[in-house]
Design a protein around this nucleic acid. Sequence first.
DNA 1: GTGGGTTCCAAACAAAAGTTAAGGACGCGC
DNA 2: GCGCGTCCTTAACTTTTGTTTGGAACCCAC
Lengths: 243, 243
Amino acid sequence: MDAEPISDALVRRLRTTSGLTADEEQAIRVLPVTVRSYGANQTIVRDGDRPTECCLIVAGFCLRAKTTSTGHRQILSIHIPGEIPDLQSLHLHELDHDLVSLTDCTLGFISHIALRELHRRWPNVAEIFWRDTLVDAAMFREWIVNVGQRPAPSRLAHIIVELRERLRIIGRVDPDGFEMPLTQEQIGEAMGITAVHANRVIRQLREDNVVELHRGRVTVLNEMKLMELADFDGRYLHQSPSL
Amino acid sequence: MDAEPISDALVRRLRTTSGLTADEEQAIRVLPVTVRSYGANQTIVRDGDRPTECCLIVAGFCLRAKTTSTGHRQILSIHIPGEIPDLQSLHLHELDHDLVSLTDCTLGFISHIALRELHRRWPNVAEIFWRDTLVDAAMFREWIVNVGQRPAPSRLAHIIVELRERLRIIGRVDPDGFEMPLTQEQIGEAMGITAVHANRVIRQLREDNVVELHRGRVTVLNEMKLMELADFDGRYLHQSPSL
DNA sequence: GTGGGTTCCAAACAAAAGTTAAGGACGCGC
DNA sequence: GCGCGTCCTTAACTTTTGTTTGGAACCCAC
């Protein structure tokens, strides 16, 4: 698996979600990529930066977050291998949030120049990348609904199910669960609640035999209850090219 | 003002935020637009629809919202003249939320076909439109922070200040205030709280002489207090082409 | 101008979430 | 194996927010 080309996860994802052709795939594969490794909890790019390259997650988990002037951090999204969390920096020059590693990560950096050249030569790839940023926005919209309207247990259920759907596409869901390497503090920051309350909610879902969170892994105990709680309608993920 | 060409507000906005050239501006101006009028509180396009055209707001206010299975509605954004709230439908075929008129509206519909042709002929305009959807996403990110991390009075202050910043660009802010035609119920739906609590918060801001909301208009009573409450850093709006 | 709908307002009470604090489990490095 | 730091856990208490309800103000249509 480590021997796989760097952009493999990206290409596989775009193929299933956006209908990439073989030529286009090849054009992406030959992009020059600089690989760097990061430990957990490191800031890759920071609010206010003006990056000159985009960051492809090759291995590990990242998150995007903003911090208010009072020091409260809100997690905006969780990112998995094959995603380019800061693709928007190609056209939005100043970053308006942080990109942080959640676990040890292998990241591939692709220069804006190379990406712009790719888009010039392959307008259809540009459209596919545009589409990718639109799905990103769709996920933010759903995240707003989650934080704004759902009771805390449903919020957690929704985050869990969304992550699972996305991990499925890259073949990272086992029968006995999947990885979700967030601390309770971070889960709270994702749901817009405190760590103490996050702990209460997690305990409740465990006591009700819905899901078990342990050591960065999720085990689903009752699929039906989970889905009912989550109020999950995956259409917003636009996982098929026709959507 | 009614005699102005339909795409005037759009073109003026893109010129200041994205650096549109005269040629590109002309290409946008000659787009075929179908104008239709809507009353207040009408659904323009609905969650699940597959629109074949995009909707430019010529006059009036609109909002985007999603409704959970329990019937709770979350407002995702408020839109003003010159914006194309459903530009994403060009590449995300199935709509994942509703677009609703807030006031009486004049809307200009532009077919996806015409827009795609525009993008093919003017790749730089495509990039500007892409950028526009990226700013959209940036606004969603800030909206998540607002709903997730700020206390209710700050939330309201933030929404007010953001709307004001955007209205300023299209010249719709007077010395004595600006239009914000939301009911208290809708303000609640935007903040992720109930209408009763929205009323409490509005009352508090009025009693503290910060802002006055009355008949769909905002009057700022204490600019300093408002900005302090709002925790507003407008960089996420990316209102200058260099950002 | 009257009547009916919507919006606004507000009180009383219930529930959810935040705060503070402190102990326990666990993992890692020495 | 010990100590240290991070994360998890829980309790007691406070604050914020939701719920229910009812009335007042306002607006528009007739």
